[in-house]
Design a protein around this nucleic acid. Structure first.
Lengths: 107, 107
DNA sequence: TTGACAGGTAAGCATCTCCTTACGCATTAT
DNA sequence: ATAATGCGTAAGGAGATGCTTACCTGTCAA
């Protein structure tokens, strides 16, 4: 299954979906247990889960009449990789200094 | 100026806006120079820049009739912080082991 | 087998997003 | 002063998003 990077960025752009992933950090959960944490209707939750599924950020396991969702954290790697490119600009003083010296004053 | 975290996630959800930030890593740039790199019309570029501005990810400097945009990488920190919460699940075997021992098998 | 429960799909609607073209307004060049 | 340049805003339209209610299917329990 191929997941394009943009799909992941889109999937995490909604606060509810980020909270869903946060919930799944503590373990797999069935839909109703996830839905308890949100004001929206259960179908709305299902739809958010489909987006996460589409981005490969979660998988589904059927257990009887339940469907448990499981986090697939590796799929966040493109986000981490992209962000990593910027981190040095705010939390690495040596790099900032080096950059300053290399490029001259940009002001 | 207050910027809500969700605004940042939304801002970076569009590939064009991520590429714009990537361009600004190498230094401040006027709009036309940014626009050269995209197929879309210049107004469309302006509108993307407004989104980035709204999220606090860039600032504007007027230089004569030009407006140079400058990256404000610290604003990406909420994204980094959120992502950091997940990194250990794919690239830190010790943490994974520790977690496993602490919490017991969740399967 | 009948009912309750888990949870997905359908349909409809409001709103947002992203793009376009047309235009306006400064600033610089002639 | 006039024209050209840089770049924003306005308006409008196509399609995506995000929500809702109504409905359907599959599983478990009585």
């Amino acid at each position: 299954m191929m997941h394009t990077e943009p799909e992941v960025f889109g999937a995490i752009s909604h606060p509810a979906r980020r909270r869903m992933l946060d919930l799944l950090v503590d373990g797999d959960r069935p839909v109703n247990e996830i839905a308890e944490n949100f004001e929206m209707s259960r179908p709305a939750v299902s739809q958010h889960l489909r987006v996460l599924l589409g981005a490969g950020l979660v998988t589904e396991q059927r257990h009887g009449r339940e469907r448990r969702y499981r986090l697939v954290p590796e799929q966040l790697e493109p986000v981490r990789d992209w962000i990593a490119h910027y981190e040095r600009f705010w939390d690495d003083n040596f790099t900032r200094l080096r950059r300053h010296l290399e490029k001259g004053d940009k002001r």
